[in-house]
Design a protein around this nucleic acid. Structure first.
Lengths: 208, 208
DNA sequence: AATTATACCTACACTTAAGTTTGTATCAAT
DNA sequence: ATTGATACAAACTTAAGTGTAGGTATAATT
């Protein structure tokens, strides 16, 4: 076997990316070898080295393909024009948690995020994206604060930290090996959690 | 150079553990070689293989030395007999965050926790410890609930998840490569955060 | 139809880090 | 004082994974 048409070549490239995404997010970048990826895609390492320069380049390509779009989708849901900014954030968080808890690509992407921390090259890129996300969230909270939606003893920075930390914790809870002893109805818990967070950040008068 | 007295040998063993702790928590277990550890301790790998069976055994010894004591210290602070359980938890969380934010051994230990996830051997042991911690936190919250300290729309499970997730998020925030764009007065933020969490979980009448 | 560039596969060389063996200087005990 | 056990160092072996050079069949180009 040998040369294929351009379309076919692109298809194998995508398969390689699929397999890489699967294995990287499952076992981590460090513990996944190029041979394993090639095997999963029913190719050889030769194919990988044809389409990508090396392992880092492969990871980079994965970012370009799936992560950036997911990130954009995420913060679009946070900044729904017109609507109440605090409400948006709460809804977005709720949606985020629910989606993380399913077998979504978002979850896979988040798994990759964690793995990418190890690779300095990509850690920078991640930081950039995180900065943008953070900035959007911060802006939303600032708007909420200016509208008087925040609790008087809850500064914008604290509210930001609360959401920020909760998100990180959720990712860890779902993606991490860290099993939680207490298994229960996630849907209900997430709903109650959001309500709790609302009590934490909202101005009293906002909680009708 | 060669044989030393028992005291001296024990000293090098401790130095090896120190160096391992330092490098493991800094760069991760996978990316730290035994040669680097030996070099940092101004020894050779021979010394490591004398005192420990292999890399995993070295990690295991690190756990025995520092992690278990730290864990016990932690959940003792959560279950202060007599005092209001919810108050205990809130105080413990506050202290945890403050300590995590300094250059404490607790922080190093938490860094190790994250790294240990990669090693299946240790992941189990970690799970055990986490289960105990979880169990203690859960019990404290259950007591609080029975005393009517929890908000009517906040189940024990949800409160548990909130603390659990916040803790995980804090660890990630402090230990992770994930830099936070917004730098600010941590002391103030932590204080406000705890107050926020209290509003989230407490029964209305408890917030005099 | 002949040629060239593409899209791989195969095999091997190179690197890195773990693990093992051997050597050796010294402490401790007889 | 000799001997054996100890506490390492240094050299060697092994294994795994990366990177690369060469081959090859076929699509694309002329």
């Amino acid at each position: 076997m040998a040369r294929k048409t351009k379309a076919e070549a692109e298809k194998t490239r995508q398969q390689l990316l699929d397999s890489a995404m699967k294995l990287f997010s499952e076992k981590g970048v460090a513990k996944t070898t190029l041979a394993q990826i090639a095997a999963d895609a029913e190719m050889t390492r030769g194919a990988i080295y044809w389409h990508f320069e090396d392992k880092a380049d492969l990871l980079h390509a994965l970012f370009e393909r799936s992560i950036t779009p997911e990130a954009e989708r995420l913060w679009h849901s946070m900044t729904n024009e017109g609507a109440d900014p605090l409400d948006c954030l709460l809804r977005a968080s709720h949606g985020f948690w629910l989606e993380m808890n399913s077998e979504s690509t978002l979850k896979q992407v988040m798994m990759l995020y964690r793995q990418a921390e190890q690779v300095p090259e990509l850690a920078e890129k991640l930081d950039e994206m995180h900065c943008q996300e953070d900035s959007h969230m911060y802006q939303a909270l600032k708007m909420a604060s200016e509208q008087g939606s925040l609790h008087p003893e809850m500064s914008v920075e604290t509210a930001f930290t609360l959401f920020h930390t909760l998100h990180g914790g959720m990712v860890q809870l779902v993606c991490g090996v860290r099993k939680c002893t207490v298994e229960l109805d996630k849907e209900k818990i997430f709903r109650e959690l959001i309500q709790g967070v609302e009590r934490a950040v909202s101005a009293p008068e906002r909680l009708k």
